[in-house]
Every structure is written in C-alpha cells, then in structure tokens.
Design a protein around this nucleic acid. Structure first.
Length: 565
RNA sequence: CGGGCUGUAGCGCAGGGGUUAGCGUACAGGUCUGGGGGACCUGGGGUCGGCGGUUCAAAUCCGCCCAGCCCGACCA
C-alpha cells in the first residue's frame, strides 16, 4: 500500500481537547474520525486494525464451536415487549415507527433477536448447546456521552450467545469463554483486570467484567490488595463501620427547608453517618423505599438483586406526591400496603439515626431500627468505597477507575422463559434453555490498546493487531533508490505501507512513530551501497542493519510469529 | 435534562461596528534539499454555524435556533 494513496494522511494539528489522549492519537494518525456526538467513522487504517482484531476474536470463538451470524440492528418492538426489556432499558432504547405505524427499536444489544432466531430455527434439545456470535452495531442513546471511543452512542460489539440444556452445561461452558477472552486481551497487550459485576439491564444472574484501569473510565472497581477480591462498585461488598451508641428515646425535630443530607448535617450538627436517608425507586414491584445511611449511596444493582425485580430508576417528585409522599422528608415510616421498604444492614445495625418524618419540615432523631421503624427486607443495598474492609479477609480495600472492554453474563433462563423459547428433553419435559451472553466493545478495546500501548511519539501497536507489519521509507530520491524501494514494496505487498511522499526524512520518521507500525524499514544511499537496509523496532526502539536480500525472509518470519497482516 | 465555554479556509487559530477578513499549516505547480515537522518562488481556496433584529455600516452588538466541547445530574 502506498501512503500517498492512503485516505487520509496524518494531521499536524489537533483540537486542544484531543491533545494527549488515545483518541487524539487515533485521529491524528488517520485511524478514526468523529462525525457527531458519540458517532465515529473508521478510516482505512482503523478498519485494518478492526479487521485484525475481528479475526483474532473470531478465531477464539470458533475454537469454542461458535458460528458467526448477523441479526438485524433494527428489531420489532414486540420482541422487546416480550422480554420486558422495553421498560428495563429505559431511555437508552431508541424507538421509532415505520410508515405503517409498526413500532421498532434500534437494538442496544441483541439477546432478543438471538433468542427469536433460535425459537424460529430449532425444534429439538438435541441441537443444544449452540453458540452464536456476531460483530454488529449497537445503538444506545446514552445519558452522558464522552468524547472518544470510550462511550459512544453507536458502536460495534462482538456479541456471543450460548444456549444450554442445563445450568451445569452453562457453568461448564462459561469458563471457556472467560479464558478465550483472557487470551484475546493478552494478545492485545492490555493490562486487564476481571471484576464481579452487576447485570444492569441485561437481566440474568451473574456477570464478570473485563476492565482496564484508567482515569478516563467510568466504572469504579473495588479491590482487596490482600486476598484479590475484585468487584465493580455496583455490587462490591465490604464491612461497613457501624454507629453503635446507647439507644436514646426518639424525638421529633423541626427541620424547615432541610431537604438534603448536607442541610441536616448543618442544621442538626450530626455527622452524615448519623443520618439515614430514604430513597424512592420505581421498580418491577412498584414503589420501593430504600433506606441507607447518609454517608452511603444506594446501589440500584444490589437493590434490584435483593428485590428480585428490575429497578427502573429514582421516582420523580411528582410521582412521590401522587403517592402521598413528601420529597425531602421521606421516611421508613412511610411503609404501608404497596410500598416496600428495604433497609440497609448498616442502618439496621446502627443506633440513634436521624430519619425523615414523612411530613414537611420534620425529622426524627435517635431512631433505632426494630424499635422505631421496620423494613420488609434488611439487606446490603449500599455502595462501599476505598477503605472499607474486605468481607473475606478484613484488609482495607482500594478503589480504581477503569474502562470496561468485555463483559460476560450468565443469563440463566431469563430470556428463554420470558420469550417462550423451549424444547422437550429426552423425557418429554419442557425445558427453557439456559443462556450466556458475551460481549467485547470493539471501539473501546482499540482505544484502550492505544491508551496502554503508546508513548510520547505515538501509537505502539502490538504486532498482532497492527494495520501493517512494516513501514517502508527511503532517504534520497535517486532512480536506483526508487527502484530498490519499489521492488521491496512489491515483494512485501499488503504487509508493508510504503511512504512514497516527497517529504523531509524527519516528517516520515515522525509519521512512522505516530502510526505505530511495528517495524520501520529504511533505505538510504549509503546503506544501499552496503547492500543493506535499516530496521527499527517500534516497541523497543532497537535499530539494526539487515541485508536487502533478507528483508522478505524477515517479514515472513514476523508473519509466522504474529499472524498474517 | 441543567450550567459554562466555543463555532471565522481541509485542520489549528487570530481579529471583535468602518478599505479587498488575516496567520500557521495543509493543498496544487516549480527549483533546490535529504537521518527527526527544510528553504525559496508561484497559485487556488471563505454564504465568518443558521435565522432574525439594531445601525448609514455587522464576522464584530442584541435575540432566538442549531452544532460541538467541558462539568453536573434527581442520593430526598
């Protein structure tokens, strides 16, 4: 490939906000370009990286017996109503109607379409297990879009779906995918960590995230440095320090205008750990009041697990008023028919807390669980953070921001039950297959490869995902030089990018570094007279001479080492 | 959804009521160069985000809209 013909060339200038970011390197090098908020184009170089990654991942999926399919991006709304996820996904789900008025969705993920595909195509348990995967566009109307490939609205995901006769079979298959993912991320040279995670709107039971630590991430991972416990903050557990005092009699106090924890801290001179806050959520079981201590935040993920039903989000002030509740003064005492109260363990085990009074401008002090208020459920529903002691070994835990690059779910029969996917087993009993789903965000992975494989000069691609193996250039423009260079380019074919521009050597060197192609091969008049070329390795900066005649062998060797370009 | 900032050449920026709107870079042609963003010559490229208003006169002031970026989002 001739660089002069490659669309487009590297940029010399970047907008300030992209300077020094992985996304900036990708833009500057001509790998990707933004089109609009959360929308990105892959350019030829970027697509070459994409295809190499795709081949790498597909190879692993095939090893597990996976078969590639492609289900539509647009789905009939009816499918989503059947799974119940039209409500669960909420605002991320883009809906539209076609000219005939049929309701459609743009899929944020493809469980429904895959289950439907199986429903249409399989009639016997004998066909299980089956493992299907695809590389398909997703669209999520994210609340918060950040610049770069880390959180985009439209993105391509490798998503895989496995279906099993028994839970045991799913349990057996799941670790195989886990290890396949580990091989992929190791090959990509990203320092991934694995964390237990919540299921969010995917449904199901259990999940593991593959994350790369980064300041830019919007996941928080809690880790125990001693025993290695690692979990997403949404579900991480830890030992919560309690407030234990001799119980005092409860008393009502006036708290005019105190509608936040901070107001109460000032007004009552009580630390946040001495307050209990009551939060109202819309859930699959109606309105639920979650009571956590003032210094904690509710984990909707934990709440959802405890309730065994989806949590859609916080109730709005108007919804509260319709139910006769007073925003700002919600109270566990608001518990009654149709309103479930879930009390966090730290609240249940602490004494003399301030709680809302359930009416305007009043709170109660010295409220004690069991004596002054009750809950339908007592459970851990609060997020822990750094400093909390590990539940398993007692060591103070640490926290770290990270970017999620892969996520695997044990979905169980969540979808097969809801969507009516079933077969008869050998004894004539109806079974709902157990399902796993497995995703890798392609853009994010590329972005994180760049973030963790780059230096001040540019990208340093791991050879297995590099767009080309060799960056070929010369200094000097003599006819004999040109001929030698062209001959080499011809011989290397698609494995080399030939910089045939009439630019100063410096410019070519800089672009070679920016593009991050693993080996730079240079011809000069002097080298040529020796019958040699110069090779520079991008990863190490090592430079050595190689006989011109042996270049082809060398590249062939690289190909055997790292796979074809 | 809320707040702030920004929209001027492909890209990065300056100008901020009054001649023909500039600079760097990129681009096209040419000459010389050649080991880390080389020099010189020549050339082309603009509805100043959109609509409306104020004014003798608007890229510039005002209003609305649109887009992008950053921050914050129901923690009662």
């Amino acid at each position: 490939m001739r660089y002069s013909q490659l669309f487009p060339h590297t940029l010399r200038t970047l907008p300030r906000e992209h300077e020094g970011t992985p996304y900036g390197l990708l833009v500057k090098g001509g790998y990707v370009r933004g089109l609009g908020q959360g929308l990105y184009s892959f350019l030829p170089l970027g697509l070459r990286v994409f295809y190499k990654l795709k081949r790498l991942i597909a190879g692993e999926m095939k090893r597990l017996g996976g078969q590639e399919v492609l289900v539509p991006l647009v789905n009939p709304m009816e499918l989503w109503e059947r799974s119940g996820r039209d409500l669960l996904v909420g605002g991320d789900l883009v809906k539209f109607s076609d000219r005939a008025g049929r309701q459609m969705v743009i899929s944020p993920t493809h469980e429904e379409a895959m289950v439907e595909l199986l429903r249409q195509s399989m009639r016997s348990y004998r066909m299980l297990p089956v493992f299907l995967y695809q590389f398909q566009t997703k669209y999520r109307d994210e609340e918060r879009v950040r610049i770069g490939l880390l959180r985009s609205r439209e993105f391509i995901m490798k998503d895989g779906y496995s279906f099993h006769r028994t839970y045991a079979d799913l349990n057996n298959f799941f670790p195989k995918v886990f290890h396949a993912y580990e091989r992929v991320f190791r090959t990509c040279n990203v320092p991934y960590i694995v964390a237990e995670a919540g299921v969010g709107y995917m449904g199901g039971e259990r999940s593991y995230e593959f994350l790369v630590p980064s300041e830019r991430g919007d996941n928080v991972v809690i880790r125990c440095p001693s025993c290695g416990y690692t979990a997403n903050q949404d579900i991480a557990i830890g030992i919560k320090p309690l407030r234990t005092q001799i119980p005092l009699p409860m008393e009502e106090v006036e708290t005019p205008g105190c509608v936040s924890m901070d107001d109460l801290v000032v007004h009552l001179s009580v630390p946040k750990s001495g307050l209990a806050k009551t939060m109202a959520y819309r859930t699959g079981k109606g309105l639920v009041l979650a009571v956590v201590r003032g210094d904690y935040e509710v984990s909707t993920e934990k709440l959802s697990q405890v309730l065994g039903t989806p949590v859609f989000g916080l109730a709005s002030s108007s919804e509260l008023r319709e139910t006769g509740l007073v925003p700002g003064y919600l109270s566990p005492l608001d518990r009654r028919d149709g309103i479930v109260v879930v009390v966090d363990t730290a609240v249940a085990d602490s004494s003399n807390l301030v709680i809302g009074a359930g009416r305007e401008d009043h709170h109660y002090m010295n409220a004690n669980f069991g004596r002054d208020f009750e809950g339908d459920l007592v459970a851990d529903i609060a997020k822990v953070w750094a400093g909390h002691r590990c539940y398993y070994c007692g060591t103070p835990m640490q926290e770290e921001r990270a970017v999620e690059i892969g996520h695997i779910f044990k979905l169980g029969d969540f979808y097969s039950q809801r969507m009516g996917l079933s077969f008869f087993d050998e004894r004539g009993r109806e079974i709902h297959p157990y399902m796993g789903s497995y995703g890798i965000g392609m853009g994010r992975l590329i972005s994180m490869i760049v973030e963790t494989n780059s230096d001040e000069h540019g990208i340093v691609w791991p050879p297995q995902v590099a767009p080309f193996m060799v960056f070929l250039m010369s200094i000097g423009n003599s006819l004999s030089m040109k001929r030698k260079l062209e001959a080499l380019a011809e011989a290397l074919g698609d494995r080399a990018l030939l910089d045939d521009r009439h630019l100063s050597p410096g410019r070519k060197f800089l672009d070679a570094d920016l593009l991050g192609i693993p080996y730079r091969i240079l011809l000069t008049q002097e080298l040529l007279e020796e019958g040699k070329v110069e090779v520079k390795e991008r990863t190490t900066g090592k430079v050595w001479k190689l006989a011109y005649q042996r270049v082809e062998d060398f590249v062939h060797y690289l190909e055997e080492q790292y796979g074809p370009v």
